[in-house]
C-alpha cells in the first residue's frame, strides 16, 4: 500500500486548518467518551456513580469492582464472576481462528493458483455466506448440533464459527495470493514440486501479513459474537459476551454499575489489546481490501 502515504495536493488556509483540528479533536473526544466512562466508573465505589458523579474522576480509588466482576459477581444463578466465561471464550476462539485461517489459506491458494472452470462461482457462493443474516440458519443449526451430539458444547460453537468464517478468510487469502507471481509457481512445478510443496515452500513463507489480517479479523468477530453464543451455548460453554449481558441485565438486587463497567472492560480487553498491538496491520489489510474493492 504505497499510496497510503501519498499526501493530498489540497492546500488549506490557517483559519480552515484551525477549524479542522477543532472538529477532529471534538470527534476524538466523542469516540473516547464511552471508554472514559467505562474506565473511571470501574474504579470508584457505587455511591459515587449513583450520586451524580459518573463523569468525575474517582474520589476514592478502588479495584473492588474489577475483582468482583472477575471472580464473584452473580452471573445467572452462580456467583462465579466472569472468569469461567473468559476461559470458555478462549477455548472457543483459539481453535476456531486457527482452523478457519488454515482453511482460508488453502482455499485462497487453490482459487488463485489452481484455477478450474466454475471456481469464481464457488468463491461467490462462499463469499455470499459471510453476509447472510444468521437468523436464517439458527433453527436448522440448533437441530444439526443436536443430531451431531454437539448441542451446548464448545466444539459445537467452534464448528459454527469456522463455517461462517471461511468466506472471509478465503476472501483475504484469495485477494493476497492473486497478485503473487504465478511464474514462480510454474517454475517450481517444472522443477517437480507438488501441490503442498509449492504451498509450503513458496506461498506460506510470504503469507505473514495476510495471516495477521485474517487472524485479527476472525479473533475479533468470534470473540465479539453474541448471537451464536446466546443460541447454541450450554451452561459450560457460554462465551464472555453472553455472560456480560447476563450480568448487566440481571433484574435482582442492587444494580452495581461499577461492576458492570469493569466487566465490560474485561470483555473488551482481548480485542482491544489485539487492536492496539497489531492494529496497524489490520487497518492496512482492510484498506488494501477496500481499495481493491
Amino acid at each position: 500500500m504505497s499510496v497510503a502515504t501519498q499526501d493530498t495536493a489540497i492546500r488549506t488556509g490557517r483559519v480552515a486548518r484551525t477549524l479542522i483540528y477543532l472538529v477532529l479533536l471534538l470527534f476524538a473526544l466523542f469516540y473516547l467518551l464511552p471508554l472514559y466512562v467505562m474506565v473511571v466508573n470501574s474504579v470508584k465505589p457505587l455511591n459515587e456513580i449513583t450520586g451524580g458523579g459518573m463523569m468525575n474522576l474517582p474520589q476514592v480509588f478502588t479495584l473492588e469492582p474489577w475483582a468482583k466482576a472477575w471472580s464473584s459477581a452473580q452471573i445467572g444463578v452462580e456467583p462465579t464472576g466472569l472468569q469461567p466465561y473468559f476461559w470458555n471464550s478462549i477455548k472457543m476462539v483459539v481453535p476456531a481462528v486457527a482452523i478457519s485461517t488454515v482453511l482460508g489459506a488453502l482455499n485462497g491458494y487453490v482459487l488463485t493458483k489452481w484455477r478450474f472452470r466454475g471456481d469464481t462461482i464457488l468463491f461467490g457462493l462462499m463469499l455470499f455466506a459471510c453476509f447472510i443474516p444468521f437468523q436464517i440458519v439458527l433453527i436448522p443449526m440448533a437441530r444439526m448440533l443436536g443430531l451431531m451430539g454437539m448441542a451446548g458444547t464448545t466444539q459445537g460453537l467452534v464448528l459454527v464459527h469456522v463455517v461462517y468464517g471461511i468466506g472471509f478468510t478465503t476472501l483475504y487469502f484469495r485477494n493476497y495470493y492473486a497478485v503473487f507471481p504465478t511464474e514462480l509457481i510454474r517454475a517450481a512445478q517444472i522443477d517437480g514440486a507438488g501441490f503442498f510443496q509449492i504451498f509450503w515452500r513458496i506461498l506460506l513463507p510470504s503469507s505473514g501479513p495476510i495471516a495477521v489480517v485474517s487472524i485479527i479479523w476472525q479473533f475479533t468477530n468470534i470473540w465479539n459474537d453474541f448471537l451464536f453464543g446466546a443460541s447454541f451455548a450450554g451452561a459450560n460453554s457460554q462465551p464472555m459476551t453472553v455472560a456480560l449481558n447476563n450480568l448487566v441485565q440481571a433484574s435482582h438486587g442492587v444494580k452495581e454499575y461499577n461492576v458492570h463497567f469493569a466487566g465490560a472492560i474485561l470483555a473488551a480487553l482481548p480485542t482491544l489489546l489485539v487492536y492496539i498491538v497489531a492494529g496497524r496491520y489490520f487497518v492496512r489489510g482492510l484498506m488494501a481490501g477496500s481499495v481493491k474493492g
Binding site: Y31, M38, T241, L244, G263, A267, A268, T271, G279
Partner: peptide, 13 residues
Amino acid sequence: YPMALSFIVTGTA
C-alpha cells in the same frame, strides 16, 4: 477502536 469492541460492550457503556 470502537470497531474492535463487542456490541454488548458498546451497548452496556
